[in-house]
């Protein structure tokens, strides 16, 4: 197995194109586990840890352009205001050591249905910036990025350069179920974002379907109900019946399975409880901000 260590983004893209058998390595918190368990023996590892461009973020056009190599620890420390949902999710990843190594770009690359970063990226309407030496940058809405269990829309010669995440214009929440209180892979996860500027609601659900996905019907339903009740303007209390109806629709978007971490029935149940609670917290945050 070759170990490729490009020192620049351009070099990384060229190596990626030249070595379709290479597996990109970011923080290694997924890849190294697979290698250790001998579930994977790629021809090469493409270590992106020495590509400085990947480890930066900046704000542009109302979005945070988050380099694929920015670790969770920095998302927590530096982006809590701009990307609160992602920061909350980052806080639930692994242990402190894992959060220092693991990156949002790596999480996207693995495309696990349980990836913690995915639900808040979906809720925020993020866009993945894929890049190749041959064709340059291609933008993929995150909702179209996940194509199956641990599969994504990247072409064989592409790498994830960054993810563009709209800066929050309203409250965001992230909740995740695990059977212990830290260092746990999600049994189910839910993220929501309120976009009062455009009177919209964003959602993302994790570990309850073959891919992370939005609960689009629930989003449209809640935004519409808030609209027709005049709540976007009045910022009145969110009726519990509405929160429950929203939660039912969120659960309807899921298609979970039974596995060693939990039952399908519990996944649906917990997802709906999280959706009801989290949207209520978000709405209350919005009211308090008013």
């Amino acid at each position: 197995m070759d170990f490729l260590q490009p020192a620049s983004w351009q070099e990384a893209l060229e190596l990626r194109a030249a070595r379709p058998d290479a597996v990109p390595l970011a923080g290694g918190t997924d890849v190294m586990v697979e290698l250790n368990f001998d579930r994977r023996r790629p021809g090469a590892l493409l270590d992106l840890g020495r590509v400085p461009e990947l480890r930066t973020w900046r704000t542009e056009d109302g979005c945070v352009r988050l380099g694929a190599g920015v670790p969770y620890a920095r998302v927590i420390d530096e982006l809590g205001k701009q990307l609160p949902g992602l920061a909350m999710a980052a806080r639930t990843v692994g242990s402190p050591q894992i959060r220092i190594r693991g990156t949002v770009g790596g999480n996207l690359g693995s495309s696990s249905p349980a990836g913690d970063a995915h639900p808040p990226l979906l809720a925020a309407g993020a866009v993945v910036q894929a890049a190749s030496a041959a064709r340059g940058i291609r933008e993929i809405p995150v909702a179209e990025f996940f194509t199956g269990v641990k599969r994504n829309a990247l072409a064989p010669d592409e790498l994830i350069g960054a993810v563009r995440v709209p800066v929050a214009t309203g409250p965001q929440q992230f909740s995740k179920i695990g059977t212990r209180n830290a260092m746990v892979i999600a049994v189910s996860a839910f993220a929501c974002a309120l976009h009062p500027d455009r009177r919209a609601v964003g959602t993302g659900i994790g570990s309850v379907a073959p891919t992370p996905r939005r609960a689009a019907d629930a989003e449209a339903f809640l935004a519409g109900e808030l609209e027709s009740a005049g709540l976007w303007e009045s910022r009145g209390e969110l009726p519990e019946t509405l929160a429950r109806a929203f939660a039912v629709r969120v659960a309807a978007a899921a298609s979970p399975i039974d596995d060693v971490r939990g039952t399908a029935a519990y996944r649906l149940h917990s997802l709906s409880v999280m959706a009801r609670r989290a949207v209520t917290w978000a709405w209350n945050d919005l009211r308090e901000a008013a």
């Binding site: 992230f174 999280m274 609670r277």
Partner: peptide, 10 residues
């Protein structure tokens, strides 16, 4: 709280 920073209950 139960769930801790997984933020499942306040």
């Amino acid at each position: 709280l139960p769930g801790a920073v997984n933020n499942t209950t306040h």
